[in-house]
């Protein structure tokens, strides 16, 4: 464990807590993409399959349970909670996210480190996580008024993978044979997808204006 990975995990945890806070306290998911939440639930379900077979540390297992629990409960809230589901803008959240799942699965079947069931699904989760934010970014561009909590959620979610990139550089420099091109490229693509959001987020923060993405 290094400071970059810890910062990444804490940023990721913060993003999930901000979203749960928003949904649980103000009982609203306005501006939040259910498609992205469903993709993230699939990402964690396929990434953490080894939770029962391999144990790294209490921290590792605990965080996996938190990410699994929070992502599935957010999907449950947005689909079935009587008050929250009414605030979900179904008409705007129309990204065909299943069109993201299939190519990621095919790519994982083609490019992976080992051709085993767990490894292919784990690689699939890396590819899927890289593009999972797309429905949310599209939704943000459609809904003009982005409330602070949703903006902070996306900002923290984008930031965590950036810390992971620093973690991979650190591990590459300090651990012999730590080379994982698939993880690195997927993580880089994921972070780059946030580039324009980050630009507009900082602009709104600097000029103390409401966050508005260009249509």
């Amino acid at each position: 464990m290094n400071i970059f990975r810890l910062a990444g995990d804490m940023t990721h945890l913060a993003s999930v807590l901000v979203l749960l806070l928003k949904i649980h306290t103000i009982k609203s998911c306005a501006g939040v993409s259910l498609k992205t939440q469903e993709l993230y639930a699939i990402v964690f379900a396929t990434r953490y399959l080894d939770i029962f077979t391999s144990f790294y540390s209490i921290y590792n297992t605990l965080m996996k349970l938190i990410f699994l629990g929070s992502s599935f409960s957010i999907v449950w809230y947005m689909r079935y909670h009587k008050t929250v589901r009414r605030t979900y803008d179904r008409e705007q959240d129309t990204f065909r996210h299943w069109f993201l799942v299939l190519p990621c699965l095919l790519l994982a079947l083609l490019i992976h480190e080992k051709f085993t069931f767990l490894e292919v699904l784990w690689t699939f989760s890396l590819y899927l996580e890289a593009v999972a934010i797309l429905p949310q970014l599209v939704l943000l561009q459609r809904t003009r008024n982005i409330d602070n909590l949703t903006g902070q959620y996306v900002f923290l979610l984008g930031g965590y993978r950036g810390f992971y990139i620093l973690n991979w550089i650190y591990r590459y420099l300090t651990e012999p044979h730590f080379v994982h091109w698939i993880t690195w490229i997927a993580g880089l693509v994921q972070t780059l997808l946030y580039a324009d959001f980050f630009y507009y987020y900082f602009q709104s923060w600097k000029n103390n204006k409401k966050l508005q993405l260009p249509a």
């Binding site: 080894d50 590792n60 996996k64 991979w168 044979h177």
Partner: peptide
Amino acid sequence: WPSSSSKDEL
């Protein structure tokens, strides 16, 4: 070579 795993990451 034995590549040190990244599976210990979240």
